[in-house]
């Protein structure tokens, strides 16, 4: 039985291409009403994961549970309540924007008025009667987004939705996505290779690198990791490390610098006092503010263990 509290859940999801595990044992949990930012560098396995979530490809191992149902058994029932946009936008170039949506509407059986609604949501109303081959890449992307919203889905899965948009379009789409849970009760999973994209809209983050989930938590937890670090330079780092370890502070060394998580003022004073009493010469005490971006880079390079 899948955990009923999750809207979407994967367990040990794995996909192999030519012997290489491009998605490896991925466990992802998405709760109702969340905006889940699925973050990872290019080639990390985001699109491959999303294709498995939609049943476009079959996992080598693992399971996908959506709305408490097993995707491999109830794909069509599940897809009724999912809207998606995978990688490059899909479109029929010889048809107008409106007719493109009409090909989907005939199958989804939503009222005709819904087409005008979603076109308005992505600001394509003026282009509705133009053929899509005349659209810019950004317009095609917005049409794809309109298509994903057409069936008023419970769950929206968007793969790099701001690709190809100009900065103004990006800001607009970001704001639109932010409002979806509040206004329409949708849950959103969106992927990106840019932390800044995710940072501005997501409530939860999953970071994938080389096919593996290396971080998954509320975005605030990630932000905390961006908090300051303390660096202390001294003459004898080995002794210093022992002294600090006795006080329950684990440190990392770089040359004769010791690095530790930032501490409250009083604690810093105490640390310095202890080090001096132990006969060490303290050369410098400095703090470093890591940005979210640094953290993401470190995480995906695998230089830091969580």
């Amino acid at each position: 039985m899948g955990n009923q509290t999750y809207l979407l859940e994967t367990n040990g999801l794995t996909k192999t291409y030519k012997g290489a595990k491009v998605v490896n044992g991925l466990s992802l949990q998405l709760e109702e009403g969340e905006i889940y930012g699925f973050l990872g560098p290019n080639g990390a396995g985001k699109t491959t994961t999303i294709r498995m979530l939609l049943g476009l490809i079959k996992p080598a191992k693992g399971r996908v549970t959506v709305f408490g149902k097993d995707l491999s058994k109830e794909r069509i029932t599940i897809l009724k309540q999912i809207g998606s946009l995978v990688e490059s936008p899909s479109y029929y170039p010889h048809l107008t924007g409106k007719d493109n949506l009409e090909t989907l509407r005939k199958i989804l059986q939503v009222p005709k008025s819904r087409i005008a609604e979603v076109l308005e949501m992505v600001r394509l109303t003026k282009m509705a009667d133009r053929k899509v081959k005349e659209y810019s890449l950004g317009m095609k992307q917005r049409l794809g987004l309109a298509a994903s919203l057409l069936g008023s889905p419970k769950l929206l899965i968007l793969d790099e939705p701001t690709n190809g948009l100009d900065p103004a379009g990006m800001i607009y789409i970001r704001e639109l996505i932010k409002q979806l849970p509040v206004k329409y009760g949708m849950t959103v999973l969106l992927s990106s290779h840019l932390l800044s994209e995710i940072d501005q809209v997501a409530t939860k983050v999953g970071i994938i690198a080389k096919g593996e989930m290396i971080f998954q938590d509320q975005i605030d937890v990630l932000r905390e990791k961006a908090s300051r670090k303390l660096h202390v330079q001294m003459n004898d780092w080995e002794t210093g490390q022992k002294v600090l370890s006795r006080h329950g502070i684990e440190t990392a060394r770089h040359d004769n610098w010791l690095t530790m998580p930032n501490q409250p003022d009083g604690k810093i004073a105490e640390i310095v006092k202890e080090l001096v009493y132990s006969g060490l010469d303290i050369y410098r005490v400095s703090e470093e503010i890591a940005s979210l971006e640094d953290i993401f880079l470190n995480l995906t390079k695998g230089e830091e263990t969580l």
């Binding site: 049943g55 029932t77 897809l79 999912i82 170039p93 199958i107 794809g144």
Partner: peptide, 13 residues
């Protein structure tokens, strides 16, 4: 050409 197999095949049919 328009990459829409993935769109058609994620429809509930």
């Amino acid at each position: 050409s328009g990459g829409s197999w993935k769109q058609v095949l994620t429809l509930p049919v």
